[in-house]
């Protein structure tokens, strides 16, 4: 029972990342009609915002380490610690949450530049051309990151207050041994917040209402004298923020490298397809669903029955869903069908 609950939490966590990426992907597809293969790169860039912020905060001075006598050794003391003492140390420890705040404007800017600089020229082109150009962009962005940060994962740590394990069992009156890492709970909470704010923005604000109207009938909204294009650009920026935050906050769970975007891109496309092309709710539900199924598939008794199932479960589900519901779980008619 406990392990089921824990695997459920693991699945929700993984699913949260999938859902956030897929949400951004669907948002862009639904508004701009662009199949954006560079979307995974936005996730990766978000993660590297965290890495960069950490690097900036820990710019250090070399200090001779007297405890080593065999040779001249040095330790690095960050200037922040030298100037601010304990406060400096705490700021460095909280670098991931701080970088999440930094990521919002940075990712918005990256999103706007990407849309205005490249994507806008491909609105009227075929999906195949959109895929090629955005895939190329993803490779270029990945390689740029590789040049600056190297090819190997760079681990980031959660603040010490949030890096231990939460005694869930004791809190909920279940088994004492039931614990779960704090940061993963924080990630889950943050993703719920992000998803609900995106939905609130689209459903409850006038701006969002116009965007939705534009998604349904772009021409009509245009004829009403609304500059729908500018609103779509903003939506692209929002999608970039959502995905970037997903990446930024994921760094303490998964040390980022330049290639992480590609790994998540494939999965999030599967999520979008399973959820139904163009359906925001579908993307979020499918994200959580696939994350949970992937976690349960890794349980040892499941692996005993079907070895290696944890590696392929997502694709297996995608095949089954596409065979039974070709438009995905919540897909609408007419999306990407003509």
């Amino acid at each position: 029972m406990d392990s089921l609950l824990l695997q459920l939490l693991n699945g929700l966590d993984k699913g949260a990342a999938y859902a956030l990426i897929a949400l951004g992907l669907t948002l862009v597809f639904g508004t701009l009609g662009v199949v954006n293969f560079a979307h995974g790169a936005l996730f990766m860039l978000g993660a590297f915002v965290a890495v960069s912020v950490n690097k900036l905060l820990t710019i250090s001075q070399k200090v001779r380490d007297e405890s080593i006598t065999a040779f001249e050794a040095y330790t690095e003391k960050p200037y922040l610690e030298i100037w601010l003492g304990d406060l400096g140390t705490e700021i460095i420890q909280w670098s991931v949450p701080i970088s999440a705040l930094v990521a919002i404007p940075v990712m918005l800017l990256i999103g706007l530049v990407m849309e205005r600089g490249l994507i806008q020229y491909f609105y009227k082109r075929t999906h195949a051309e959109q895929i090629l150009v955005t895939f190329g962009l993803a490779i270029v962005l990945g390689e740029i990151i590789k040049v600056f940060f190297g090819a190997n994962p760079i681990s980031q740590s959660a603040p010490p207050e949030l890096s231990g394990a939460a005694r869930l069992g004791a809190m909920l009156g279940l088994n004492e041994n039931l614990v779960y890492p704090w940061w993963r709970l924080v990630y889950l909470l943050c993703s719920f917040l992000i998803v609900s704010s995106v939905f609130a923005f689209l459903k409850l604000t006038t701006y969002g209402m116009v965007v939705r109207a534009g998604m349904a009938d772009r021409e009509m909204v245009g004829l009403l004298g609304i500059n729908i294009q500018r609103r779509f650009t903003v939506v692209f920026g929002i999608a970039a923020i959502v995905t970037g935050l997903a990446g930024c906050l994921y760094t303490p769970i998964l040390p980022p490298d330049y290639h992480m975007g590609m790994n998540f891109l494939v999965l999030s496309f599967v999520v979008v397809v399973v959820g139904g092309m163009g359906s925001l709710g579908g993307a979020v539900c499918a994200g959580f669903l696939l994350g949970i199924l992937q976690s349960f598939a890794a349980m040892s008794w499941v692996k005993d029955i079907v070895p290696g199932i944890d590696q392929i479960i997502i694709y297996l589900i995608a095949v089954v869903i596409l065979l039974t519901r070709p438009r995905g779980l919540m897909g609408r008619k007419g999306v990407m069908e003509g």
């Binding site: 406990d2 392990s3 824990l6 695997q7 693991n10 966590d13 993984k14 994962p153 041994n177 039931l178 993963r184 769970i253 998964l254 040390p255 992937q294 976690s295 890794a298 349980m299 040892s300 692996k303 944890d310 590696q311």
Partner: peptide, 23 residues
């Protein structure tokens, strides 16, 4: 009790670590 094999280069071990407690 069990020997569970994990792919080389796995970065997230959470799903493999969870069953350890219950075993």
């Amino acid at each position: 009790v069990n020997a569970l094999r994990t792919p080389l280069g796995t970065s997230d071990y959470s799903q493999y670590l969870t069953p350890v407690r219950d075993s």
